[in-house]
Structure formats: structure tokens, C-alpha cells
């Protein structure tokens, strides 16, 4: 149905395709499947880099963010978690380029630390796991909304959305979901097995 080319043949495909894709070639203009595989751009660059240096958040804030990310999407039996998927870097990078977003995070993380200090005498990142969990159990649900918790609930919604974004837009997240697309196929076909499965379950 479709195949992934190795990097060498991708480069060949890229050379073959240029003219045709730009509609400058004579002839039929029909692309071979191999040529269409230029669509697979090089896999994410394997950047070998040292530990990430936060650009927007300070060291304390970044430590809290990492712990939050880890708690929102942890590793499990099927896949790694949000830290491995680059969520803290993603959020810090965007904060560095957007002052409004940075305020949401510095404000939210500041609120979180102050709240943890009040309750447990420790910053969020230094608190015991059960204390961190107790805090998130409050701010991760709208039903707990109250003047005292509103800033935390609002902030956690941002953090949860962005950690989820970072995780599922990573290669790890793609694999976790089993996404198979954005490739090149010679024809579009639905496996009969899938069709039968859903029809049977639906009773339609």
C-alpha cells in the first residue's frame, strides 16, 4: 500500500521530482510513487545538544514546569512522557517570543509556588509527590473553582493544553497514537479488517 523510503532514495526522489512538481516538465506529469516520496522530508533533525538552557523562565520556574509536564503526561508502558517529548522546551521557547504567554507562566508558576509554601512549606518542585498530587487534584478540575483557586485552575488549563500539544506533536506522541499518515500512497484504500470491525460494533 505504501512504503517508506530510506534516506538515500528520498534524496533521489527529491531530485526526480523537482521539475515535475513545479509543472515545468514536459510529458505526462505523472509522478511515480517513489518520486512522490519526497513528501517525506528528512526525519526530525537529530540534534545532539547539551541540556536545554531556558530562554524565558528562570531556573526555579523551569524546574516547576518540568515537574508539571511530567505529571500531566507521564511515561507509561506504551510510551515515554512529556519531558522526553520536549514539552518544557516547547513552552519556554514560546514564552521567550510572546510576552503575554510568558506572563501566564511566570504568574501561574509563581502562584503555584506560593500556594505550596502556604500549604506545605515547600516550593512545588521541592514538595513531596503526594503534596504535588494533592495540589493538582485541586487545580486540574473546574468543579473546584473558587476565588482562592481560580488563578491556579486557569493556569493549569494553559499548562495542560500546551503539555498535551507538545507531547502529541512529537514523534513519541505520533507513535503513541499510532498515526500512520502524511505519507505518499499510490491509491487510497481502507483495510477491510477496519471496516468490518466498526460495522460489527456499530450494529448498523
Amino acid at each position: 500500500m505504501f512504503k517508506i523510503l530510506d534516506d538515500v532514495s528520498r534524496r533521489d526522489a527529491l531530485r526526480t521530482i523537482g521539475a515535475s512538481a513545479a509543472l515545468t516538465a514536459s510529458g505526462t506529469g505523472v509522478l511515480t510513487l517513489d518520486a512522490a516520496q519526497h513528501v517525506h522530508q528528512e526525519a526530525a533533525s537529530q540534534k545532539a545538544s547539551g541540556p536545554y538552557k531556558p530562554k524565558a523562565l528562570n531556573a526555579q520556574e523551569y524546574r516547576s514546569l518540568r515537574r508539571l509536564a511530567e505529571m500531566i503526561i507521564p511515561p507509561d508502558a506504551k510510551s515515554k512522557g512529556a519531558i522526553e517529548a520536549g514539552a518544557p522546551e516547547y513552552i519556554d521557547l514560546l514564552c521567550a517570543n510572546n510576552g503575554e504567554l510568558k506572563e501566564i507562566y511566570t504568574g501561574g508558576l509563581g502562584w503555584l509556588d506560593r500556594e505550596m509554601k502556604k500549604r506545605y512549606g515547600a516550593l512545588f518542585a521541592d514538595a513531596k509527590p503526594e503534596q504535588q498530587t494533592a495540589m493538582l487534584d485541586l487545580i486540574a478540575y473546574r468543579k473546584n473553582d473558587s476565588p482562592a483557586l481560580a488563578p491556579g485552575i486557569r493556569f493549569f488549563t494553559w499548562a495542560r493544553n500546551m503539555v498535551v500539544d507538545a507531547f502529541y506533536t512529537s514523534k513519541t506522541g505520533f507513535d503513541d497514537l499510532g498515526f500512520m499518515g502524511n505519507g505518499a500512497m499510490a491509491e487510497f484504500k481502507v483495510p477491510q479488517e477496519a471496516m468490518d470491525y466498526a460495522l460489527k460494533r456499530s450494529g448498523l
Binding site: 517525506h40 522530508q41 526530525a44 516547547y90 521557547l93 510572546n98 506533536t169 512529537s170 514523534k171 505520533f174
Partner: peptide, 17 residues
């Protein structure tokens, strides 16, 4: 059309989110 989100640091959110 064929870039995946993880090929750009901002994942498609835009450089300034």
C-alpha cells in the same frame, strides 16, 4: 504539506505562539 509538527521547534504554533 509534508512537514510534521516535530520538525519545527514551535510545532506549528507559530514562532510567537
Amino acid at each position: 504539506e509534508h512537514v510534521t509538527p516535530y520538525q519545527v521547534p514551535h510545532r506549528g504554533a507559530g514562532a510567537a505562539a
